[in-house]
Design a binder for these strands. Structure first.
Length: 310
RNA sequence: GUAUUGCAUACUGG
């Protein structure tokens, strides 16, 4: 059963909901892990109703089942439904509280988030970073900073959240100040700074970050491609893309946007055609590219593809 | 004292 549960998880992660369901259905004695994994698999792949359905068919949902549903609603931006789940919970642990606070925070309801935060008995470092990053996202870096200063044991994630906040508010100096001051830097810290320099068109500094970081992952590579793209250096962007050992959908979207940015519409179309998978952003980008190039019929075709997404 | 499940930070258009 342990292995079957793991299979549900794996299938869920790669979007194979039907396969996950088949495994789930075949398990003789499902435990709460099987149920929770199945609910998560459904929710993560957009089947909110089926997730809810499975959730209600579960005999005794535990705190994880509730939290999984809570997060499912939160991800869809359905905060009221999320709150409903939260209020129904017979027992709430700290993860449940954090998830609810996060639901408020990432929909910009920071007053609600902070209210819940203040009502929380034993806050964890996640509670703090949820709130800090929430304010940072909204551009309220000063409030984020106050919380950061107030935070008892600042984790590297809290530091990174602050840096990210400064980067989004284009306060590159403040970001680099924090970056220098933090006790340790990880790949997220480095990539945040890389992004900051990419957006402010400081290519040499971006490249310096990329070369200096102790380890790189797909996200940092993508950020480097973006840095070249924003400078209009399409060949460098392409070369960097080619050197990557693994491409995510973001890598592909970045490359399409890079060609579009320098006006190479046909090349953008070629890249788009090569994409192993596409999301809404891929299509939206192509709609814009084609429309601006006057290829209205093709743009319309893309646009129609978009409506089948949601 | 960490590993079958739920929460936070970085990358792509707006």
């Amino acid at each position: 059963r342990l292995l079957l549960n793991k299979l549900i998880h794996l299938y869920g992660k790669c979007g194979a909901v039907d396969e996950a369901w088949r495994v789930f259905a075949d398990i003789q004695q499902r435990d709460s892990f099987s149920w929770n994994l199945m609910i998560a698999a459904l929710a993560e792949n957009g089947y909110l109703e089926r997730a809810r359905d499975t959730f209600s068919k579960m005999g005794r949902p535990d705190v994880v089942s509730y939290t999984t549903m809570l997060r499912a609603y939160a991800q869809k931006g359905q905060v009221f439904e999320a709150r409903d789940i939260f209020d129904q919970m017979p027992y709430k642990d700290r993860v449940a509280w954090n998830t609810m606070i996060s639901a408020y925070a990432r929909t910009g309801k920071l007053q609600q988030a902070e209210l819940l935060f203040s009502q929380m008995e034993e806050k964890t470092s996640v509670s703090w970073t949820v709130l800090i990053s929430g304010y940072a996202r909204e551009g309220e870096v000063q409030r984020a900073r106050l919380l950061f200063e107030e935070m008892p044991d600042r984790t590297i994630v809290a530091w990174n959240a602050m840096i990210g906040g400064y980067v989004h508010s284009k306060l590159v100096e403040a970001a680099s100040g924090m970056f220098d001051r933090m006790p340790h830097r990880d790949v997220v810290s480095w990539t945040s700074m890389l992004t900051a320099y990419a957006h402010s068109l400081c290519l040499h500094k971006a490249k310096w970050c990329f070369d200096s970081m102790p380890e790189r992952n797909v996200v940092s590579w993508n950020a480097m491609v973006t840095a070249y793209a924003h400078k209009g250096l399409i060949d460098q962007a392409q070369t960097t893309f080619d050197r990557m050992f693994k491409h995510s959908i973001v890598s592909w979207n970045t490359l399409v946007a890079a060609y579009a940015h320098v006006g190479l519409v046909e090349e953008a179309v070629q890249v788009f055609r090569q994409m192993p998978e596409r999301d809404q952003l891929s299509l939206t980008t192509m709609v814009n590219v084609l429309a601006q190039a006057g290829r209205i019929d093709q743009a319309r075709e893309m646009f129609e593809g978009l409506t089948s997404f949601d």
